[in-house]
Computed example of a mutant assay.
Amino acid sequence: MKYLALIFLLMLSGCSGLKIDDSYQSEGHDSRVQFIVLHYTASDLPRSLQLLTGDQVSSHYLIAEQPATVYRLVDENRRAWHAGDSQWSGRTWLNATSIGIEMVNRGYITGPDGEKVWQTWSDQQIDTLIVLLKDIMQRHNLTPASIVGHSDIAPQRKVDPGPLFPWQRLAHEGLIDWPNPQAVAFYLTEFSQQMPSVEWFQQQLAKIGYAVPEHGELDQATRNVLAAFQMKYRPQRYDGEPDAQTAAMLLALSTQFNR
């Protein structure tokens, strides 16, 4: 009995004496990281650090504005709490499969007429983000389809990183996919003559990765997803209304996704 109790105590203490042979290694594995999610903090640096180092919300990295310092707050092998209730390409609750990058940016203030006045992004901060993204993507063997915004994975409740975030700059660096301009122009001619149905818009959004209803009704949930797509790819107008240009960009992008 004493012998069994000793074995139990040794196992609890991690000193069981178990020998593990590491001479064989499987090739059937990849990184747990499948996505990189971009956020803004909606606060200044001191408040951002205070919030992100507490026990309620966290991210793997925080990028300050001036100077554009990169703070590593959570090891990439650990799960940070940044995505919340989220979905992309059929995966849910993306904390477990993503790296979260928060950027110090106040987001927006509400103007006197109720309109949102968005804060611009500094070139230095975006330059630093690009270097960090390239490093993460290379180490985890990620594709351009892996980088998303919080508004992409949670369009019913989030708008960050917002319409002024320079997604096209990331596209120019090869970090995200972007609708081919020639394809957009071609499809725009077609859709200007006849708009596709709401169900078509929902199907194309789903192909790209968005969690969207597919019942053919232009409800608020569908408008929110359309607005998230427009904010990213056509930030000049992101009212959530289906239109010919949005349709053309959607088809150009979904065709690229499904080659």
Score class of each variant (00 low, 15 high):
residue 213 P to D: 14
residue 213 P to C: 11
residue 214 E to F: 12
residue 214 E to Q: 15
residue 215 H to A: 14
residue 215 H to W: 14
residue 215 H to N: 12
residue 216 G to L: 07
residue 216 G to C: 05
residue 217 E to H: 12
residue 217 E to P: 06
residue 217 E to N: 11
residue 217 E to R: 13
residue 217 E to L: 14
residue 217 E to D: 14
residue 218 L to V: 05
residue 218 L to C: 02
residue 218 L to P: 08
residue 218 L to T: 07
residue 218 L to K: 06
residue 220 Q to W: 10
residue 220 Q to C: 09
residue 220 Q to E: 13
residue 221 A to T: 10
residue 221 A to M: 11
residue 221 A to H: 11
residue 221 A to L: 10
residue 223 R to Y: 06
residue 223 R to A: 09
residue 223 R to V: 05
residue 224 N to E: 14
residue 224 N to K: 15
residue 225 V to L: 07
residue 225 V to S: 06
residue 225 V to N: 02
residue 225 V to G: 05
residue 225 V to R: 03
residue 226 L to E: 02
residue 226 L to C: 03
residue 227 A to V: 03
residue 227 A to T: 02
residue 227 A to Y: 03
residue 228 A to S: 15
residue 228 A to K: 13
residue 228 A to Y: 04
residue 229 F to P: 00
residue 230 Q to M: 08
residue 230 Q to N: 00
residue 230 Q to S: 03
residue 230 Q to R: 01
residue 231 M to S: 08
residue 231 M to A: 04
residue 232 K to Q: 07
residue 232 K to E: 03
residue 233 Y to R: 00
residue 234 R to T: 13
residue 234 R to M: 14
residue 234 R to L: 12
residue 235 P to A: 03
residue 235 P to G: 00
residue 235 P to E: 06
residue 236 Q to I: 10
residue 236 Q to E: 14
residue 236 Q to A: 13
residue 236 Q to D: 13
residue 237 R to L: 15
residue 237 R to H: 14
residue 238 Y to I: 10
residue 239 D to V: 02
residue 239 D to E: 10
residue 239 D to G: 02
residue 240 G to W: 04
residue 240 G to T: 03
residue 240 G to C: 01
residue 241 E to Y: 09
residue 241 E to Q: 15
residue 242 P to R: 08
residue 242 P to M: 10
residue 242 P to Q: 00
residue 243 D to C: 10
residue 243 D to P: 09
residue 243 D to A: 10
residue 245 Q to Y: 15
residue 245 Q to D: 12
residue 246 T to Y: 08
residue 246 T to G: 04
residue 246 T to E: 04
